[in-house]
Design a protein around this nucleic acid. Structure first.
Lengths: 195, 195
DNA sequence: ATGAAACGGAGTATAATCCTCCGTTTACTG
DNA sequence: CAGTAAACGGAGGATTATACTCCGTTTCAT
């Protein structure tokens, strides 16, 4: 269930294949976030520490790779969002926790890659994501954490903004730390928390 | 004085040359911000609405182009920052006004391009920029707008974060509007203004 | 009007990218 | 602990993008 986007009724993958598939997805996510566009096949394979052939075996064309990436990221993010909504004490906390999680899952890729896909092969996930954002907004509004001028779009745009690397040669750890810190300040302003 | 980065003791440029130079700089700034790396020559020329030759005539190699871009952006941003510092009622207001201005000048390019330059051909501007950030921080701290945990680095990183386009196919106007809105929320959190 | 400076389109050399063949290595099964 | 099938990676050729230049035309300044 938490295995990301695995089509269920397929012959089960061998262990190394499964590992490499995961690495390819992670490499693609990182490259898309860093460069903001379609990464080259060679670059993906190199980043993943795998041969180019492996990439082609798992994902015959760019479309299937990007589709898999989107499914993977969206699923992991929605999962985190549902947890946030279920376990947080207040609506504001849920929003806060969800956005921080979206930085770690790399949600930003979805919006970047979206325009490169010719089909919308995941209307269900899109609906689920929208619905999640709506419920997060609703919860925060009910608790008085946000005013009427703040909507689901603000949350979506925030996740895009803070997911993107700064592209100034920082190592991933520093990059993430900065993103979380900035997001916290942003949320301090967005949510009139406590005060 | 407000003509951007014009080397003073050179033969004066013809009117069309000056115009094209400006367009090339703007195109480069936009492309660097959108793609986060070295844009191709053809792309720059096309975006500027000029021929490739014109690009080569003004900037013989990539280095000179990037250097010119940095000088241009830094100068215009510093100018705005000094104005903000001089004319704002409070330190917090100065910080706010400076960061909003940096979105419009495109300051983000400097940090992105910085790593692509092999020399630091503008130690004076770098010093001036640092100094400006220090004075802005100092002013805001004196007015109680920021605590001791917020420093000049936060301002620099914020300008990078909010300068970068979201890369989701928005038109420039929408892009800028979102950036300003998000920056405002961020600053509401960063500066414990008023409250 | 005239000379000089600036311009753009077309074209070639170079580098990056895409994609496949095939011998080797790695994981599962009895 | 074999044996087999699946998965792997490096090398290489076809295709595409990028960098840069020649030269006839247009635009500006006097």
């Amino acid at each position: 269930m938490s295995t990301g986007s695995m089509p269920a009724n397929e012959p089960p993958l061998r262990a190394d294949a499964r590992r490499n598939r995961r690495r390819l997805l992670d490499a693609t996510i990182a490259l898309v976030l860093e460069q903001g566009g379609e990464p080259s096949r060679d670059a993906v394979a190199q980043r993943a520490g795998t041969g180019v052939v492996t990439l082609y075996r798992h994902f015959p064309d760019q479309q299937s790779l990007l589709r898999a990436v989107v499914l993977d990221v969206v699923d992991r993010t929605i999962e985190q969002g549902e947890l946030a909504l279920a376990e947080s004490a207040t609506g504001g906390d849920a929003v806060r926790r969800y956005l921080h999680a979206s930085i770690d899952t790399g949600l930003g890729v979805v919006n970047i890659v979206h325009g490169l896909l010719d089909d919308t092969a995941w209307p269900d996930r899109l609906a689920a994501a929208r619905d999640l954002l709506d419920r997060l907004t609703e919860a925060a509004r009910r608790d008085g954490a946000i005013g009427p001028d703040v909507g689901p779009t603000d949350l979506a745009l925030a996740s895009i903004r803070f997911c993107r690397p700064l592209a100034i040669g920082l190592d991933p750890d520093a990059e993430r730390a900065i993103a979380h810190r900035q997001l916290d300040h942003y949320l301090d302003g967005l949510l009139d928390s406590g005060r």
